[in-house]
Design a protein around this nucleic acid. Structure first.
Length: 578
DNA sequence: ATAGGGTTAG
């Protein structure tokens, strides 16, 4: 068979059996050991969706003298597989093996991609130094790959340094840095870089750039910056891109503006994808708008597209957040009827749903019946035990978490809360000791608030703000007024070994309270206050903010890591279950 | 013999 014809067939390959037929053909014609077609076949088998990596490895073993490209195909395929770390192992085998091959820029590129996926930092550093030795450092594409790896493994400073040292960063280099900042811990810098790129005039931000910038806005919850990015998108007609529209919708929802999110959803200038629908349903879920989510889910069914597992997750989540237990149960069953396999998140949603309804036994049965133990489900169950004060079930769930070695600070706090609610102080002490012995790490909590287009960040007990004095004065005032209203601090949320008065103080300087107090000092009456928190809102803060919303007659919106809490006239949209 | 590789959604 002529090689050109063979390559054409390769391009048309759409199933695994095609691959095998072509392989048989190569072998029969005696071309297997000599032609570049074999390499192409190997690549197809290792990388494409109709291929099969383990079969590619099987073929590879028959190659007497694998070429650079044969090795690259294997490394690339492994980098894309579910075990990307293995690609580094193959890279080392390639470096150690004798033969006609030499490591080239592509080899490095694929191996680095694997490091990014496997979050393998030290391996990335090793590859980086080798790549410098090989003299590939002038390659812009490799520079960008490197930048991306460092950003993804969390070393944003190094990623930025690489960017700064690039002689000619192109649009992908900028995009990699912006997305890196946005996905990592520096969303404000992502927005800054987006603006610099836009105003620099050299390179025009494209569809990829704006997605990074929008993600940064969502992380920060900054509606103002998000609107600016949206404006740019419309000006540049990037809103013809569905993926961009989806991120815009998600951004508006996460910045608290459901009106704008829905407007974009309704007025799209391109066709909606299933992801568009799912994004919007998830947005309603996040805001506790259960009926809107259910309506949209029904509309989706009528639109001609069929809901997938994510659509069901979104609408289950909405039922959950809105307390629509029966609707949720029906949907879960419907999902099975439609032949969709529930995954761990669906089960988590069901556990939450039963938990919310106080049906702890049924929640427990789900967690216990799954073939693989999963810590998130036990944590969810533990949360439900806290709400309903079920000590026995709480001990069972936390016992499982300890057994799995996955118990976290938050879990200990939940268990302690259950004991505290029953005045079982010895047990509270026992939990505290267990935490100390295990040296449980606490993720530091912080909150953002946007005032007149500027973001302010608060950490626990923050005293670094210029208006610090006013903030603490406002907190004192709040404390007086809520106490007059009959509030007493729920100190079961505090685990430190300190006196009662100190416990109250420990609670009253939580970052979300500081942010709300700051919001009260510098906004007009009647203007809603919006706060973004990186962790879940604490129980005491939830009580206090409800009271503030009543006493100060303010609508207060808090986005925590899972959902929105809308406080109004002393009540919260989550109906006190979260 | 040659090209191939980098940034992006629920």
């Amino acid at each position: 068979m002529a090689m050109a014809y063979f390559n054409l067939l390769l391009q048309k390959c759409s199933s695994f059996s095609h691959i095998k037929q072509l392989q048989a053909n190569l072998i029969i014609n005696g071309d297997f050991h000599f032609s570049s077609s074999r390499t192409k076949l190997l690549e197809l088998c290792a990388v494409s969706s109709c291929g099969d990596l383990s079969y590619a490895l099987h073929i590879f073993r028959y190659i007497r003298y694998p070429s650079t490209n044969d090795w690259n195909a294997i490394i690339r395929g492994t980098a894309l597989s579910s075990d990307p770390a293995n690609a580094v192992v193959w890279y080392r085998a390639m470096a150690a093996s004798n033969g006609p091959h030499r490591i080239d820029a592509l080899t490095c590129s694929f191996a680095l991609k694997a490091c990014a996926r496997a979050l393998a930092c030290s391996e990335a550093i090793q590859l980086h130094s080798q790549l410098l030795r090989f003299g590939f450092n002038a390659d812009v594409l490799l520079q960008t790959t490197l930048l991306d790896v460092y950003a993804k493994v969390g070393d944003l400073d190094l990623a930025q340094k690489l960017f700064d040292e690039m002689p000619r960063p192109d649009i992908a280099s900028w995009n990699a840095l912006i997305s890196g900042f946005a996905q990592g811990s520096r969303p404000a810098d992502a927005i800054m870089m987006f603006k610099r790129m836009k105003e620099g005039g050299n390179l025009r931000p494209n569809a990829v750039t704006v997605q990074g910038a929008l993600l940064a806005c969502s992380q920060l919850g900054t509606l103002k910056e998000g609107e600016n990015v949206h404006k740019y998108i419309v000006e540049e007609k990037l809103d013809m891109n569905v993926q961009v529209c989806n991120v815009v919708i998600d951004m508006y929802a996460k910045c608290g503006s459901m009106d704008k999110a829905y407007w974009v959803f309704e007025n799209m200038r391109c066709d909606k994808s299933l992801i568009t629908w799912n994004t919007m349903i998830m947005a309603f879920a996040m805001h506790g708008d259960g009926y809107e989510a259910l309506d949209l889910f029904k509309k989706l069914g009528r639109s001609g597209m069929s809901p997938d597992a994510v659509s069901y997750l979104a609408v289950l989540c909405a039922c959950n957040h809105a307390g629509l237990v029966e609707d949720g149960l029906k949907l879960f069953n419907l999902m099975a009827q439609r032949g969709l396999e529930p995954n761990i998140k669906h089960y988590g949603s069901m556990v939450d749903l039963f938990g919310r309804a106080g049906r702890l036994k049924e929640a427990y049965d789900i967690v216990n019946s799954l073939p693989f133990p999963n810590m998130v489900l036990w944590q969810t169950l533990l949360g439900a035990c806290r709400t309903y004060g079920d000590v026995e079930m709480a001990e069972l769930a936390s016992g499982k978490l300890v057994e799995m070695g996955f118990i976290s600070c938050g879990d200990f706090v939940l268990l302690s809360n259950v004991y505290a609610a029953r005045q079982r102080w010895d047990d509270v002490g026992r939990v505290r000791d267990a935490m100390r012995i295990r040296d449980v790490k606490k993720t530091p909590g912080f909150s953002y608030i946007e005032i007149k287009g500027k973001m302010y960040k608060f950490v626990y007990g923050d005293q670094s703000h210029s208006s610090c004095r006013e903030i603490y004065a406002k907190l004192d005032e709040i404390n007086l007024r809520i106490k007059a209203y009959g509030y007493s601090a729920d100190t079961s949320n505090v685990l430190h070994d300190i006196g009662d008065e100190d416990k109250e103080n420990a609670l009253c300087y939580h970052s979300e309270k500081l942010a709300v107090a700051f919001g009260l000092t510098c906004t007009e009456e009647g203007i809603p206050i919006q706060v973004i928190k990186n962790l879940r809102i604490c129980g005491d803060c939830h009580v206090v903010i409800k009271l503030i919303s009543k006493i100060y007659n303010r609508e207060i919106v808090v986005r925590d890591r899972t959902r929105f809490h809308r406080f109004k006239e002393g009540l919260c949209s989550c109906k006190d279950y979260w």
